[in-house]
């Protein structure tokens, strides 16, 4: 499943809606001959509108990172940050407590030389 960004989603429905309404109104006023062609055009545009709605729904479903509300997401982000800080502290504690040179080398391979 390819990831979708917000920029990929086309939500410009108003122009299409305007076209549909115009077609339907013309359909009501025109003669019987032209009514048929207007009807075909309007039904085509309505189908196009439905297709566009379905595509938009699909794209929204594929959008990553919107499974939570923003508040919940920020809470999760903070929880992750706290977790990271705690893990860093724990690692530092381990580093400080070990007196073996071999373990120190394992922890800081760059400082070994």
């Amino acid at each position: 499943m390819g990831s979708v960004s917000v920029e990929d989603i086309d939500v410009d429905f108003l122009a299409l809606i305007y076209d549909i309404i115009k077609c339907v109104e013309r359909e009501n006023t025109e003669s019987a001959q032209s009514k048929r062609s207007e009807f075909q055009e309007s039904s085509q545009k309505i189908q196009e509108f439905h297709r566009k709605l379905d595509v938009t729904r699909d794209q929204i479903r594929k959008l990553p990172g919107i499974d939570y509300s923003k508040e919940d997401q920020i809470k999760k982000l903070e929880a992750l940050r706290k977790q990271l800080v705690l893990k860093k502290k724990l690692l530092q504690k381990y580093k400080d407590m070990c007196a073996l040179e071999g373990v120190k080398q394992y922890l800081n391979p760059s400082n070994a030389n």
Partner: peptide, 15 residues
């Protein structure tokens, strides 16, 4: 709401 989704995508990247 799409703008909000865009912000949330950035947050998701950080996460």
């Amino acid at each position: 709401t799409l703008n909000l989704a865009s912000e949330q995508q950035e947050i998701d990247q950080k996460m």
